[in-house]
Simulated scan of single mutants.
Amino acid sequence: MRRTIIPYKPYLKELAKKLRQNSTLAEILLWDVLKNKGVLGLDFDRQKPLDSYIVDFYCKELQLAIEIDGDSHDYTFEEDELRQQRLESLGVRLLRFTDEEVKQDMGNVLRTIEIWVEEKREQKKPL
């Protein structure tokens, strides 16, 4: 299976590095589970530049981005919608969780990710 490489704007590399160094608590908590292939053996990157954007977590194998919406997303619904549409047009699928969901109900967040992954894997199995 050939993976799609999504180019990104070079200036985003430095910004992504700064975001990794200043992660929110919810990002840290979820990263502690996702890193080292901690969810179904999947390899995730943190603060990954894609096109003109940076996603919180990204799995190349599934072209899956996971976003944690904290307070900074409260007033940017239209921007988030345009961003999501653009990434989806490139083949990226997004799962969104709130900051509170990650901090208070990690079990459900992980179940949601696992169910999504299993459904995608089932769709790719030959009949």
Rank of each mutant, 00 (worst) to 15 (best):
M1W: 01
R2T: 13
R3N: 09
R3H: 14
R3T: 12
T4F: 04
T4N: 09
T4S: 07
I5Y: 04
Y8Q: 03
Y8C: 12
Y8A: 13
Y8R: 06
K9P: 02
K9D: 12
K9G: 07
K9L: 13
Y11R: 15
L12V: 05
L12E: 13
L12R: 11
E14L: 12
E14H: 11
A16N: 06
K18I: 12
K18N: 14
K18L: 12
L19K: 08
R20L: 12
R20T: 09
Q21E: 15
Q21D: 14
Q21W: 06
Q21H: 11
N22F: 13
S23G: 15
T24M: 06
L25H: 15
L25G: 11
E27C: 13
E27Q: 15
I28M: 09
I28W: 08
L30G: 10
L30T: 11
D32M: 12
V33Q: 10
L34I: 09
L34N: 09
K37C: 15
G38C: 11
L40M: 15
L40Y: 03
G41C: 08
L42I: 14
L42K: 11
D43H: 15
D43K: 15
F44K: 06
F44C: 10
F44Y: 07
D45R: 15
R46D: 08
Q47V: 08
Q47K: 13
K48R: 08
P49L: 04
L50P: 09
S52K: 13
S52E: 14
S52P: 00
Y53F: 15
I54M: 12
V55Y: 03
V55H: 04
V55K: 02
V55E: 11
D56K: 04
F57P: 05
F57R: 03
F57Y: 03
Y58W: 00
K60M: 11
L62N: 08
L62D: 06
Q63H: 14
Q63Y: 06
L64Y: 00
A65K: 11
A65E: 11
I66N: 12
E67G: 00
E67V: 04
D69P: 00
G70I: 01
H73Q: 05
Y75F: 14
Y75M: 13
T76F: 00
F77P: 01
F77E: 11
E78N: 12
E79P: 06
E79F: 06
E79Q: 07
D80S: 01
Q84G: 12
Q84N: 09
Q84F: 01
Q84E: 12
Q85F: 10
R86G: 02
L87T: 02
L87W: 05
E88R: 02
E88A: 08
S89G: 06
L90H: 02
G91Y: 02
G91T: 03
V92W: 04
L95H: 13
F97I: 07
T98M: 06
D99L: 03
E100L: 05
E101C: 05
V102P: 01
V102C: 02
K103W: 03
K103V: 07
D105I: 04
M106Q: 01
M106C: 01
G107F: 02
N108Y: 03
N108F: 02
V109N: 04
V109G: 07
L110Y: 10
R111Y: 05
I113W: 01
I113M: 09
I113Y: 10
E114C: 14
E114S: 14
I115H: 04
V117G: 01
E118V: 01
E119H: 07
E119L: 12
E119P: 04
R121E: 10
E122K: 10
E122V: 03
E122R: 08
Q123W: 00
K124S: 13
P126V: 05
